[in-house]
Design a protein around this nucleic acid. Structure first.
Lengths: 251, 251
DNA sequence: CGCCAGGTTGAATGATTTCAAATACCGTGG
DNA sequence: CCACGGTATTTGAAATCATTCAACCTGGCG
């Protein structure tokens, strides 16, 4: 299910855990900044192990004892909760430089699964807590990251509060776009690493509604699909206005 | 709009800012714990000013320069964002022992307003940051509180992801119930400090739908209203099952 | 080459939204 | 103490949109 490496499978990228976020106070032109110094990354690397997960593999389960948090180096994860009727609600998609493993009273709040193959740093909770308590600056950086995650979650809630399908899809596309641009990925096309079902479970719509909404915004000329998992924004302003409005449109 | 006091308007309660949360690792039987020691509260009090807000008064505005965060001592606040068409989405309700004032690049992410008259500690950001960077334990406590807020936001998103009105209302009632029980308020009746419109903007439904849903759960004997703002849970198990299910019910 | 998970499309149903009107409530001033 | 005015809330009826159910398609992989 997961292999443990102590070597250097990431090549030059392997300088230890990496965390980025948009700052709380400081200006950053809307882009996430690397929060950790090389020294901090080294410190974290000393308590971390590098772990891998195949696509679809679980990182941890809701309710299980939380013994570590994870920092994604490569790949994409989702966190989710399962309802009694076995439907799922996706809480977040996690990308490189993100942290996951939120717990309450020592137990994971969500389940997590690899949406794309993952390489991650596993940070045991006890060691991490010791490190944080001894290094206020590092701790401050983690605090910034958690604030970032809180803003993301609120943005997600904002999206979910929309009652119409098109604004939801439009907002979702914009969030992905921002996220990829922030990570410096070519702006040519947005890559959707998750399935349509994942998207449906994230934005609170049925699977058919997701398909139809994508079809509609493509037909309206706002975006263009290149295959099922790549889409290009054609009319940014059109998407903006769709994302920013509640009432039905005239045209 | 707000009065500033340097005296002791809270009487014996005025021992300085107060923050509680359910711990990340430690067991607490589901209840939030006071995170701050008396010494920490004293330290925070030294940089804090006590401010009051009348019902309906704004604490700060989305997009405005964020110079302070607030810690509620008495009262209830809401944070929200306004859409272009002037409808609102409520991000959270804040109660005593909560923090508010989330920012990004130095600007508030949400607006905030007093739902009930508020007495709060105003903590200037610069001074707070200095304090945190010099006191890892205090900083750790703030980190725990932000993790708590993140869990709450995810729970909110989970609620918003439900597609049916009744599960939403049921979950909302349960969240309020838990929140009030946690703060040690008599379990006899739940008090709803916010308007129906606030509730609608929080759970992502129209105002009429909120009224109707309340009417339905009362008619079904799950709860009983004592006036518009007090409700008593009659059938906890019934609410649970309503809150925990997606598909339509047979009976 | 066939299978299967993932994805798309169609049609009918039904819940929620919307629009509208009526009612209850609260604080205030007389 | 009561009348008044405005806000908050409730209820009704029609229209709309997303869900549901179901069939079909598609692409990747063994």
């Amino acid at each position: 299910m997961s292999d443990i490496h102590s070597n250097n499978p990431l090549g030059t990228r392997d300088r230890g855990p990496s965390i980025s976020a948009i700052p709380f106070r400081e200006k950053s032109d809307g882009r996430p900044l690397q929060l950790l110094s090389d020294r901090e990354r080294g410190q974290l690397a000393q308590i971390a192990t590098l772990v891998r997960f195949r696509r679809g593999a679980p990182l941890f389960h809701e309710g299980a004892p939380a013994d570590a948090i994870y920092n994604i180096a490569v790949g994409v994860a989702k966190t989710f909760r399962t309802l009694p009727d076995s439907t799922k609600r996706v809480a977040a998609f996690l990308f490189p430089d993100d942290l996951l493993g939120l717990a309450e009273e020592g137990r994971y709040v969500n389940s997590a699964e690899a949406v794309r193959p993952i390489t991650a740093y596993r940070l045991p909770l006890a060691a991490l807590e010791n490190l944080l308590r001894s290094d206020p600056t590092l701790e401050f950086h983690v605090l910034c990251k958690v604030c970032h995650a809180l803003r993301e979650s609120q943005r997600h809630a904002f999206l979910l509060g929309r009652r119409r399908a098109l604004p939801k899809i439009a907002m979702f596309v914009q969030m992905l776009n921002r996220s990829e641009q922030a990570r410096g990925i070519g702006a040519a096309a947005i890559y959707l690493p998750m399935t349509r079902t994942d998207i449906a479970d994230y934005i609170g719509m049925s699977l058919p509604a997701v398909c139809r909404s994508f079809a509609v915004i493509e037909r309206r000329g706002l975006v263009r699909f290149r295959g099922k998992r790549h889409l290009q924004i054609i009319d940014q302003a059109g998407l903006d206005s769709l994302a920013g409005q509640n009432p039905p449109r005239g045209a």
